[in-house]
Design a binder for these strands. Structure first.
Length: 301
DNA sequence: CTCCAGGGATGAT
DNA sequence: ATCATCCATGGA
């Protein structure tokens, strides 16, 4: 006997039907993607999935049985596809990468790693707090900001907190931000939050700028230098050529690719020409491999 | 205890 | 333009 109950769409507390989207693990390695230090608001669920927010919506990734991939739910499929970068042909991007050994090892380590397309403010604010901090600490700070100043929304697992808007962080002020555990990064973040909240700079409008113009605009913000500007370009504006160089990437470049180069400028120019038009995308594979597989040598184990 | 973390701003050369 | 120093905080 057949019943319709099992086929009824899941309804949220609001009564609104929530869409879902199925994705294979080959298409998207969520574990690598969400552990690769590009977004800091996702939490592993007890079922082996992930919980987080996209904008004002609570989103959950539920693992399908038998390694069948993921069911993403909580936002419209178009929103999910955009955020997780699913409309990009990954094989075409990978084909632009160089064929050296370390690059190939990094690709083999996490073939389905993707670069997200995050809301600009969340990405910008998060990376301002990232200076001289470990990924786990950035996550902790991010959650502190969400719980103190973020808007709570209903979630399939209970409650979720959105990343606080610029006005909320501007109102929190330097001291309110410092209470989130971000130390000396509180002052520049408070200043940038004020600039964004005032409308003096509209992050959405920067999307139409060229790479050079976008970088220049981001560099005017307190707490944003070349590295963080590159992260925001790469993780929020889809500029896959932007190449962030942190301590890990500097090690990788000096030990594996360009031992003789001295300045950051030289390293950056080399990286852009050597790794090609999607250098930043390549960088994410290298970073994730070096940082989590212990391939960066002189690293804390 | 010391050393380090997805750096940037500042002041001195 | 390049360089040294300082910045808070928690993990290893």
């Amino acid at each position: 006997m057949r019943t319709c109950a099992a086929k009824m769409p899941v309804r949220a507390a609001t009564g609104q039907v929530r869409d879902s989207l199925r994705v294979s693990r080959a298409m998207l390695d969520l574990d690598a993607t969400l552990r690769s230090g590009q977004a800091f608001g996702w939490v592993a669920s007890p079922e082996g999935g992930w919980r987080g927010t996209i904008g004002r919506e609570a989103v959950e990734a539920v693992p399908l049985p038998c390694g069948g991939g993921w069911k993403l739910r909580g936002a419209a499929p178009a929103t999910l596809r955009r955020y997780f970068g699913l409309d990009l042909d990954l094989s075409r991007v990978v084909a632009t990468f160089p064929g050296d050994t370390f690059m190939q090892e990094s690709l083999r380590y996490a073939p389905g790693l993707r670069i997200l397309c995050q809301p600009p403010w969340e990405c910008l604010a998060s990376f301002i707090t990232s200076a001289l901090k470990q990924v786990a600490q950035i996550q902790r700070v991010s959650h502190a900001m969400r719980e103190r100043y973020g808007e709570p929304v209903d979630a399939p697992w209970g409650k979720a907190c959105c990343f606080p808007a610029a006005v909320a962080l501007a109102a929190a002020g330097e001291e309110g931000l410092r209470a989130c555990g971000m130390g000396f990064r509180a002052r520049p973040l408070a200043r940038t939050a004020r600039i964004i909240a005032s409308g003096e700079i509209r992050l959405e409008d920067l999307a139409q700028l060229s790479d050079a113009e976008l970088e220049a605009a981001l560099l005017t913000l307190p707490g944003v230098g070349p590295k963080i500007a590159a992260c925001v370009m790469l993780f929020a504006y889809g500029r896959h050529g932007a190449f962030p160089i942190d301590v890990w990437m500097e090690r990788v470049l000096r030990e594996r690719y360009a031992p003789e180069m001295a300045t950051q400028r030289e390293l950056r120019d080399f990286a852009r020409s050597y790794f090609g038009p999607c250098a930043g995308y390549a960088q994410q594979y290298l970073f994730h491999y070096a940082r989590t597989a212990g391939a960066g040598r002189s690293a804390p184990s």
